[in-house]
Design a protein around this nucleic acid. Structure first.
Lengths: 162, 162
DNA sequence: TATTGTTATACTCTATAACTATA
DNA sequence: TATAGTTATAGAGTATAACAATA
């Protein structure tokens, strides 16, 4: 028992602390993994959201992600320049740019990013059995519901260190 | 079933994704909570570490936190200016500054930061029963061990939004 | 010369505000 | 005038590098 433990009631890390610690760790590891795909975490999140909800305007996507629309511009510029995402002007209102995955983008999700995400999940859960992973997934899903977190979206993607 | 689900095998968020999502959420909520104590998350982490391992030099603390020593200076300056932390020069080697909590700092941990952490934990786990919280804590602890994460330290504290 | 702590500087990421075009 | 998207600017946070004191 150390000095502080004698005085404050923190004998062990709280569950919330462990969640933040492991969450940060998982985000960092994910960033490192997809760096090999020349992708930053925000780009990966955007790519996934465009794939799941194609045809949305940049305004809608920005609101969904909780980010200012101006931030999307450069992210999309890069993804579009690499031929993964496509802006299509709406003929009815030429101010809107609807976003779609290209065929190349779809293949990238299936062959590169998808497997990377699965491998990442295996990495993080390596210490648990299959049944334990299910239990953990269930408990975490309950938390996301109670805390009213948007499915498939989170702001905490972390950049890669040196 | 949406467009992307037909093409890539991501029917549900992975466990690793949920961990990152909830971890980011928890970090943000914690930042909001301790903002009422005029404390940033990095300051809270430093304060706790100084309390748990008093008498360490800034170099040692920096290595433990995985942060450059220069970053500690301003954090400590602020905490010292508020009378929560104390630098003590080592008479044997006057280059070293050993860090300690003041009595005021110890009281602050017990009466302010400690209860805030407990309330935060209750908030995040509000959707789970007591037994479920135990189970979750156990599973998360297993992950931290397998992933070799340092107890009580994580780099992912998040700043407060607007 | 090597190390501790500090100060100065630069870089990254993000948000805010100004601007263009369409309506 | 109002909105979608873009560009320009500024801020927060952090890291890197130069510096002073001590060994």
């Amino acid at each position: 028992m150390n000095d502080l433990d004698r005085r404050v009631p923190w004998q062990r890390p709280t569950t919330a602390f462990l969640l933040a610690q492991i969450g940060a760790h998982a985000a960092t590891r994910f960033a490192q993994r997809i760096a090999g795909l020349d992708l930053t975490p925000p780009q990966a999140g955007l790519l996934r959201l465009v794939g799941v909800q194609p045809g949305q305007s940049q305004q809608v996507i920005a609101r969904r992600l909780g980010t200012p629309p101006s931030r999307l511009v450069l992210l999309i510029d890069d993804l579009e320049g690499r031929g993964l995402v496509e802006r299509r002007r709406n003929p009815d209102d030429r101010r809107h740019h609807a976003l779609y995955l290209t065929d190349k983008g779809t293949a990238f999700m299936r062959n590169e990013l998808g497997p990377a995400g699965a491998a990442h999940d295996d990495d993080i859960c390596a210490g648990l059995t299959g049944a334990e992973r299910e239990k953990l997934h269930d408990l975490l899903t309950r938390i996301t519901a109670q805390q009213e977190l948007t499915e498939g979206v989170h702001p905490g993607y972390r950049q890669l260190g040196p």
